[in-house]
Structure formats: structure tokens, C-alpha cells
């Protein structure tokens, strides 16, 4: 099983959203990491076969998805970033509706809905209107619909936005369990979503894939660039403007413990730290840290 993205480019008039992207996805969880506007959603839509690329193609097991058509959509599960539901639909109606769209028989629909509702812990609310559910529950309904046809390829665009930490953990466990022998692609800008479950990651910036590899491999890129130091609280403002701060922890006695990124130690007494995925993200997207200051 292999999903191959071959030289995909998507041009929108004056903006190149995806620029000559090539990827070879094999079974496992793949994390597509990138800041907002990096081109992740466009790439996801192209992989989903719902947006035509300007050039390049997507192949599933060596065959272009445009040729596979229904056959591809049959093994494909998709949760878009923005997904809605029709007013008046309860969870059961919604899943039955999607099951029909996915071509499932009535018997299979009944069986799959029952299994999936248990799996996403929504059996109790199956007859409740979706509009009355919490954001987290709605997301779980979205995940259940993507899994209805037991897909071989699952693409989730920003699946954890709006979920609380507990729900995020549940979601990660669910995906890890599901990912065995399947290709799962998760696009996100939330590092913790993929840090512990992704078999492989691709980092996207300005429409290009700038790095790919396992979490440990990618994290090695910032090895020797992550530092921590204890500073006086009054010095913080000075360093914040100079350095790329990953974390600032107020110790309560006027001292502040900072974690920062730099080629060389800048603050006297700095200690080298073990790099994490979050450090890599900020190293590659420094603007995302600075814009919040």
C-alpha cells in the first residue's frame, strides 16, 4: 500500500499554494506540519481528489487517483478542516447519510455505525441532534464519518482544533489504534498532535516540503540549538526581543526560567537541552512565535 504525491503544484493566480511537492506515503501515521497558510489544506484537498492540481498527480499503488475514481474514494476517509452538518440531523441520521454516500449497504451501515459510535464513545448520544453536541463531540462525529467505510487511506485536516487536552489524548489513541496497516495523514500546526504518534513527518512551508523524516530524525536538526537558563525577571524583556523563546516559566521569586533557540548560548549560564518537536517547529517557523509577542 503506497500513496505517492508526484510533483504537485497548485497555482492560484498570483499565489503558488503548493509548489512541486513530492511525497511517498506508506502505512503509518504521517504528520503534515506547517504554519497557517503553508498550503496544507490545498495539498490535503488534492490528495482527497477534490481539487485538481495545476501540475503533477497523486498515485495510489502506482495508479493515478483520477483513473481510479470511485475505487479510490472507496478506500478513502476524509475529515476536512471545516466540516458541517445539516440542521436537524442527529448523530445517527448524519452517519446513515454519509454511509449512503460512501455506498455502504444497509446491513453494513448498521454494523459500522454501532462499532464506530462505541469506539468514539458516542453511543449514548446517537439520537441527539449534532447542533446540541459540544465541539469535541462534533469532532468525534467527524472522525466516525471518516472511518465509516473502513478506509485504507485516512486524511484528517486539523482534526484536533477545538478539542480540549483530554479529548486530544483520546483522539491520538484512537488514531494510533486505527493506523495499523493503513495510511493516516494528519495536517496540523499543533505539534503535540503528532509528536508521539507520527511514524513520519513532513514539514511544509510556503507551499514546499522543507523536511521529511521520523520525529527523532527531524528533532536532530535542532540538536545543540536548544538552551535553558535562569534569568532575573527584569532581563526578560531584553532577551525576548533578541531570542526565539520556546518557553518562559516564572519561578515566583522574581526569577524566570527560559527555554530558547539559538545557534550558540546567549544567556550566561545556559544549559543545553534535549530538543523536542515544538523546538523544531519554532526553529522552522520563527514568525509564529514572534507574532504572538
Amino acid at each position: 500500500m503506497e500513496l505517492e504525491v508526484c510533483g504537485i503544484t497548485k497555482q492560484y493566480k498570483d499565489k503558488c499554494a503548493v509548489n512541486d511537492v513530492s511525497l511517498k506515503l506508506t502505512p503509518g501515521v504521517w504528520g503534515l506540519l506547517g504554519a497557517n497558510g503553508a498550503g496544507k489544506t490545498t495539498l490535503m484537498r488534492i490528495i482527497a481528489g477534490i481539487l485538481r492540481p495545476t501540475s503533477g498527480c497523486v498515485r495510489y499503488d502506482g495508479i493515478e487517483i483520477d483513473r481510479l475514481k470511485e475505487e479510490y474514494r472507496d478506500i478513502f476517509g476524509y475529515l476536512p478542516q471545516e466540516f458541517g452538518f445539516y440542521p436537524g440531523f442527529c448523530v445517527q441520521d448524519y452517519l446513515e447519510y454519509i454511509a449512503a454516500l460512501k455506498g455502504l449497504t444497509r446491513a453494513e451501515t448498521k454494523k459500522r455505525i454501532s462499532i464506530l459510535l462505541k469506539r468514539v464513545s458516542l453511543s449514548e448520544v446517537r439520537h441527539k441532534k449534532i447542533s446540541k453536541l459540544s465541539g469535541g463531540m462534533r469532532r468525534r462525529v467527524g472522525i466516525a464519518q471518516a472511518l465509516l467505510n473502513d478506509p485504507e487511506v485516512l486524511v484528517l485536516d486539523e482534526p484536533t482544533s477545538g478539542l480540549d487536552p483530554g479529548e486530544r489524548v483520546k483522539f491520538r489513541n484512537l488514531l494510533s489504534e486505527f493506523a495499523h496497516d493503513r495510511i493516516v495523514l494528519i495536517s496540523t500546526h499543533i505539534v503535540s498532535d503528532i509528536e508521539y504518534i507520527a511514524t513520519c513527518n513532513a514539514v511544509m512551508k510556503e507551499g514546499k516540503i522543507i523536511a521529511t523524516g521520523k520525529t527523532e530524525e527531524l528533532v536532530r536538526m535542532v540538536e545543540g540549538k536548544v538552551w535553558s537558563a535562569d534569568i532575573d525577571g527584569r532581563e526578560l524583556a531584553v532577551y525576548e526581543h533578541q531570542l526565539l523563546m520556546v518557553n518562559v516559566y516564572n519561578e515566583g521569586n522574581g526569577d524566570v526560567k527560559v527555554r530558547y533557540l539559538s545557534e550558540k548560548p546567549v544567556i550566561p549560564g545556559s544549559r543545553k537541552e534535549e530538543p523536542r518537536m515544538e523546538d523544531l517547529y519554532l526553529w522552522m517557523f520563527p514568525e509564529s512565535a514572534r507574532s504572538d509577542i
Binding site: R45, E70, R73, L79, P80, Y86, P87, L101, G103, Q145
Partner: peptide, 18 residues
Amino acid sequence: LRPYRYQMHEIELASRQS
């Protein structure tokens, strides 16, 4: 037009029946 109104069109597009 309800698939567009209620943001269902992407899920519907990516399904077998489309």
C-alpha cells in the same frame, strides 16, 4: 445548495458517490 451552505460539500465530494 445546502451542501455549500452547511459546509458538507467537501465530505460529500470525497465520498464514493460524490
